[in-house]
């Protein structure tokens, strides 16, 4: 029983991390129809930015905020100079974001080198607590709290704020949003950058968990994020959240009981979903990829 609880907490925290990366992808895909293959690079930039600032200031909070800010700015650059020229042209978007991914990973290697940089969890959150024989990592609890907080905040923004309304309206009719006097392009830029910042947050939180940061870390996390958005329903925010936590839990349990199946299971589930429910496991019947599942 103890091991089940430990695996459950580990799975939830893995799911929270996957969600932080996939939520940005889902928002960018949901509003703008952009499949962003540069998300992995943004994730890694978040990790390196965190390590850079954390080593300078020894402040976990500053490191996290700086990582989000730096990746937010990168998101603005990506959208303004590259992606904004290619709305509606999916093949070109894929090519350019793949190119950006390669270029920005190489820039990391130029600046920080090719070898992993070790990073410890901050002291205040590095401990564990044992309750009834179950070992609970404080850092993993923090990941779960941040993941759920992001889910609640983003959901609230999408449902209740003017920004959320613009996003939901812009998904369907960006021309009509403009005809109401709203600069939808500005919202596109902000949403892309916000999605990027979430990837940055994921990267920043992942580095202390992994114990190091390395330029290749983005690839695996990006694949997991894509699996989550396919299972959740492309562009479906709440579906992506459910899928992320499901993947996290599945990873934890499969990796414990059948370790060699851990990676295979994710891809297998994605393949089954694509074959039998291509609109996504949590899509509630909507088939379009351009729908954020925000129910009132």
């Amino acid at each position: 029983m103890d091991i089940f609880l430990t695996l459950f907490i580990n799975g939830l925290s893995e799911g929270a991390l996957i969600f932080l990366v996939s939520s940005g992808l889902a928002i960018i895909l949901g509003l703008m129809g952009v499949v962003n293959f540069a998300h992995g690079a943004l994730f890694v930039w978040g990790g390196y930015a965190y390590v850079w600032i954390y080593q300078m200031t020894n402040s976990f909070i500053l490191g996290i905020l700086a990582a989000m800010l730096i990746v937010f700015i990168l998101g603005i650059i990506f959208e303004k100079f590259f992606v904004s020229r290619l709305y509606g042209n999916a093949p070109a978007q894929i090519l350019i974001t793949l190119g950006l991914n390669i270029v920005f990973i190489e820039i990391i290697r130029l600046i920080w080198g090719n070898t992993p940089i070790a990073i410890k969890k901050p002291d205040f959150i590095s401990g564990t607590t044992i309750i009834n024989g179950v070992t609970i990592s404080h850092y993993r609890i923090l990941l779960i709290i941040i993941g759920i907080s992001v889910l609640i905040i983003v959901n609230y923004i999408l449902k209740n704020s003017k920004t959320g309304m613009v996003i939901r309206a812009g998904v369907q009719r960006s021309d009509m949003v403009q005809a109401l006097g709203i600069n939808i392009r500005l919202y596109f830029t902000i949403v892309f950058a916000a999605g990027a910042a979430l990837a940055g947050l994921g990267g920043a939180l992942y580095a202390p968990l992994a114990g190091n940061v390395i330029s290749t870390a983005g690839a695996n996390n990006q694949i997991l994020a894509f699996i989550a958005i396919v299972i959740g329903g492309l562009g479906n925010f709440s579906g992506t959240a459910k899928a992320s936590f499901l993947l996290g839990l599945m990873n934890a349990f499969v990796a414990w009981f059948i370790p060699s199946f851990a990676v295979v299971t994710n891809v297998l589930v994605m393949a089954i979903v694509l074959a039998f429910k291509p609109e996504g496991l949590f899509s509630e019947g909507r088939k379009s990829i351009l729908r954020l599942a925000v129910k009132k």
């Binding site: 939901r168 309206a169 369907q172 009509m176 005809a179």
Partner: peptide, 22 residues
């Protein structure tokens, strides 16, 4: 377009242009 609208023009398109998910 958004600047034009903000100058004081209301527009009702022939396909209504309402936002389905609002």
């Amino acid at each position: 377009t958004y600047d034009i609208a903000n100058k004081g023009i209301g527009y009702v398109p022939e396909d209504y242009g309402v936002f389905d998910y609002l």
